[in-house]
Simulated scan of single mutants.
Amino acid sequence: MSENPIDPSQTSAPPPPPSSEHPSGVSSDQRQWAMFAHLSAIAGAVLTSGVGGWGTFLGPLIIWLVKKDTMPFVDDQAKEALNFNITVAIVFFALWVLVFVTLGIGLLIAIPAWFVIGIAWLVFTIIAAIKANDGVTYRYPFTMRLVK
């Protein structure tokens, strides 16, 4: 009796075709736009008056207004970027008020604070952009959620 060289019970199923969907379930377009929402704050800071300036929240605002109805992940992340940058702008403005109210003496507090906040802003923004590109929802620390 001859044995069948190909036993159907011994064969394994072919591997499934590669999936075009990201493991997070978020499409590549949404991940890319969400990343742009975070990075647009850096571009705004470079093109305008720096961290805490109006340019830092203009990019996230525009992306949020354009994509909020069609891309839920972008809606969430653009709002998060917008809220974070508005919060940083408010803190920078409050430090300026401190400087003017104390007739310049507040600079002893404001200058180191601006430096620390600026570095933290840059680090958190880059982390958020990387997380968004991975399809992970990111929440900035110490952020007032003004835009809901």
Rank of each mutant, 00 (worst) to 15 (best):
S12M: 13
A13V: 13
P14R: 12
P16A: 11
P16V: 12
P16M: 09
P16W: 03
P17I: 05
P17C: 05
P18W: 03
P18K: 08
S19G: 15
S19Q: 13
S19A: 14
S20H: 09
S20L: 14
S20A: 04
E21Q: 12
E21V: 08
E21Y: 00
E21L: 04
E21S: 09
E21W: 00
H22W: 10
H22Q: 15
H22P: 12
H22L: 13
S24C: 13
S24A: 11
S24Q: 15
S24I: 01
V26L: 10
V26R: 06
S27H: 07
S27V: 02
S27K: 13
S27G: 14
S27R: 11
S28T: 13
S28H: 09
D29P: 11
Q30I: 14
Q30V: 10
Q30H: 13
R31F: 12
R31E: 01
R31T: 14
Q32K: 15
Q32W: 12
W33R: 14
W33V: 15
A34F: 11
A34M: 07
A34T: 06
A34S: 09
M35V: 09
M35Q: 15
F36G: 05
F36M: 15
F36D: 04
H38P: 00
H38W: 00
H38V: 06
H38S: 02
L39W: 08
L39G: 08
L39H: 03
S40R: 11
S40F: 06
S40T: 11
S40D: 08
S40V: 08
A41S: 04
A41W: 05
A41H: 05
A41L: 11
I42V: 14
I42K: 03
I42L: 10
I42A: 09
I42G: 10
I42F: 06
A43F: 12
A43W: 02
A43M: 07
A43K: 05
G44S: 06
G44D: 06
G44Q: 02
A45L: 02
A45V: 08
A45Y: 01
A45D: 00
A45S: 01
A45W: 04
V46H: 00
V46F: 00
V46D: 02
L47G: 03
L47I: 02
L47F: 01
L47C: 01
